[in-house]
């Protein structure tokens, strides 16, 4: 049977998380169909047809999918799911919002945050803030999987494009309306896709300090900016900067934790980074237990000095 992957896109192109999810889908047996649902999303459908491993694109272009609300999308996917052995989404805010709704409509379980695929029905997922890894077997006929994108390589583009099939839209349920979006604008790389992340915690003391100390460092390194929950709660930076168990899960080549103590919940979001650097004035801070390179220093001296030296 085939595998259905629900693409995340901006009508023009696929979001990076979808490419990692495709990487996960390729570990399963069966052809991969990518659903691109949206309003005015034909370009994204064409884009999806280019990627390695994709056998077919299902394009559903209708006004009820413009806002990407879970209610209408779940109804659409429910109608398609019976033809598939697996339904995959990235474990992003959108995927997390959507997939449990689809699974419940089908009366089946979901496996969240899959980090390993052992066979068609056996999956590995972190529990307890990543302090344990559970191997679970799903006995449902359709496996609904949200994929932790840091655990799978993104696929590249293939030489040729596959067919894009237009499918009929589902109903407009009228349950929910988008009032507005307030998205953080930034020239910097996306947290989830960045090779280097500079992350700041409560130790920065204020939003002004955060910007003054960390932005130049991030600029020099071409890095994305992240933060601990404490820094977000204190209003230093917007919510979408939060790294951790209940924020974003990241695994860059280099993660620089500045003025972050290293609470379990924070570590859950970054401990799979390839190289971790911690700058903290407290030699007993737990962050040093996971850091490859630790510098016990006042961040207000060390971070600008590092920026200068690079």
């Amino acid at each position: 049977m085939a595998i259905l992957l629900i693409a995340e896109h901006d009508n023009q192109s696929l979001k990076a998380a979808t490419l990692n999810t495709l990487g996960a889908a390729r570990r399963l047996e069966g052809e991969i169909h990518v659903l691109v649902a949206g309003a005015g999303c034909a370009a994204a459908g064409q884009a999806a047809a280019q990627f390695e491993g994709v056998a077919k694109v299902l394009l559903c272009d209708a006004p009820q999918y413009a806002e990407r609300g879970a209610e209408n999308l779940a109804e659409l996917v429910r109608g398609l799911a019976a033809n598939y052995s697996h339904v995959l989404v990235p474990a992003s805010a959108e995927g997390k919002n959507l997939l449990p709704r689809v699974a419940a409509l089908c009366g089946m379980a979901q496996v969240s945050d899959v980090v390993g695929i052992e066979s068609a029905d056996i999956f590995v997922r972190p529990i307890y803030a990543g302090n344990a890894l559970a191997t679970v077997k799903s006995i449902d006929p359709i496996k609904f999987l949200s994929i932790r994108t840091t655990a799978f390589e993104a696929v590249g583009v293939a030489g040729t494009a596959v067919a894009v099939e237009t499918i009929a839209a589902g109903p407009e349920l009228g349950l929910c309306k988008l009032v507005g979006r307030e998205l953080t604008r930034s020239e910097r790389p996306e947290l989830g896709a960045a090779k280097i992340i500079v992350s700041g915690g409560r130790g920065l003391g204020s939003g002004d300090n955060y910007r003054r100390v960390l932005e130049p460092l991030a600029d020099k390194l071409g890095a994305a900016l992240g933060a601990s929950r404490a820094a977000v709660d204190a209003g230093f930076v917007p919510n979408d900067f939060q790294v951790g168990q209940t924020g974003k899960i990241v695994a860059p080549q280099l993660y620089l934790a500045v003025g972050i103590s290293g609470a379990i919940q924070h570590l859950a979001g970054m401990k799979d980074s390839r190289v971790i650097v911690a700058i903290n004035k407290d030699p007993d801070a737990p962050i040093f237990q996971v850091a490859d390179y630790g510098l016990v220093a006042d961040l207000f001296e060390a971070a600008p000095a590092l920026t200068q030296a690079i």
């Binding site: 979006r181 989830g192 917007p238 979408d240």
Partner: peptide, 13 residues
């Protein structure tokens, strides 16, 4: 709502 890129406001019935 807190979404990946920032915030989103929904009106739900």
């Amino acid at each position: 709502r807190e979404v990946d890129g920032g915030l989103e406001t929904l009106a739900v019935r």
